[in-house]
């Protein structure tokens, strides 16, 4: 069943549950992804992210709850819905002993789209044109991952699922993929993806859901999550400019520590503390670090040191 009619929703999940034995992999998740939205799913390993994505894709069946994908249930297998979805799984799947180009052509033909054009376009998109004639078995980890992403995009799907697409990529390839993903979003595609790179989620996602132990513990825009978390700003003053004792005496400073050659002042009142510092020692060499998504994430997942 597909729940209430929501024409602008790409995905609607209501109270979705899935258990493996006694483990509640997905424990009552409800969420809604708009069309054209870039939606991130974050969470520690084993939090249920992949299971959740696979339930959306129709590769796993939820024990209970309703899932609607582009207005249709993802199971049973619906060959009218499938061409509108693009799926990259964590394990890269390639046809044995084919070249990168042949693999992409095969995938394109499975979708019934013109193979040569899809292969050329896909290879160029992920920067594999030079390696087009290399056998899939001979590709490096990062190249395999890029080929898997190109496979997921071969048929120009509306809704794209990517499970840790940047996991094996070097920084340059990761930035190249960001560009590709931003272009896809610019072209109106909906993207749902999982990642362990918090900076990436902050840079790319319209909204993120943080999943812990099968539940959504936070769901908002990265800006709201960071702003609403009530995390302190850190003001870094070079060690030779101020003593920790003196810093602790400044009005508005909650905590002081010393780290990496700097006295670190934690505060919820950044402007007041900076103003006081300016009066005391001047602001030369002083840096401020506001909390980012990673701080929020670590706090919510209970992994903060």
């Amino acid at each position: 069943m597909s729940g209430p009619a929501e024409p602008d929703a790409a995905l609607v999940l209501s109270d979705v549950r899935k258990r493996y034995g006694t483990v509640r992999a997905v424990d009552g998740i409800s969420l809604r992804v708009r069309r054209g939205e870039f939606f991130g799913v974050l969470g520690p390993n084993g939090a249920g992210k992949t299971t959740l994505i696979e339930i959306m894709e129709g590769l796993r069946v939820a024990d209970s709850g309703a899932v609607s994908v582009l207005g249709h249930p993802p199971v049973p297998r619906d060959v009218a819905l499938l061409p509108r979805l693009g799926v990259q799984t964590q394990k890269s799947a390639f046809f044995a002993r084919l070249t990168a180009r042949e693999h992409l052509e095969t995938v394109a033909r499975l979708y019934g789209v013109p193979a040569a054009r899809a292969a050329d376009h896909g290879l160029a998109l992920v920067g594999l044109t030079e390696h087009a004639d290399r056998r899939v078995e001979k590709l490096s980890g990062g190249q395999r991952q890029r080929l898997a992403i190109a496979s997921a995009l071969a048929h120009e799907p509306e809704l794209i699922f990517l499970d840790e697409p940047t996991a094996a990529l070097d920084p340059q390839a990761r930035r190249d993929l960001w560009r590709v993903l931003r272009e896809l979003k610019g072209a109106g595609r909906t993207i749902v993806y999982t990642t362990h790179h918090l900076d990436e989620a902050e840079a790319l996602c319209d909204r993120v859901a943080i999943v812990v132990a099968g539940r959504v513990v936070a769901l908002d825009t990265p800006v709201n999550l960071v702003g609403g978390a009530g995390l302190p700003t850190r003001v870094l003053v070079p060690e030779d400019r101020i003593t920790p004792e003196r810093a602790a005496g400044i009005d508005g400073v909650d905590r002081v520590s010393v780290s990496g050659g700097a006295v670190v002042l934690e505060t919820m009142a950044t402007a007041r503390v900076l103003s006081a510092l300016d009066d005391l020692i001047g602001l030369a060499g002083v840096q401020t670090r506001t909390a980012d998504l990673e701080d929020v994430y670590l706090r919510l997942t209970g992994a903060e040191a």
């Binding site: 590769l59 060959v79 061409p83 799984t89 799947a93 044995a96 499975l110 979708y111 496979s151």
Partner: peptide, 18 residues
């Protein structure tokens, strides 16, 4: 067996190929 282990069948499962 190999296609199932390598997720090739899942790839095909996600295409409209019968």
């Amino acid at each position: 067996m190999q296609w199932r282990n390598d997720d090739i069948l899942r790839l095909i499962r996600m295409t409209p190929t019968p």
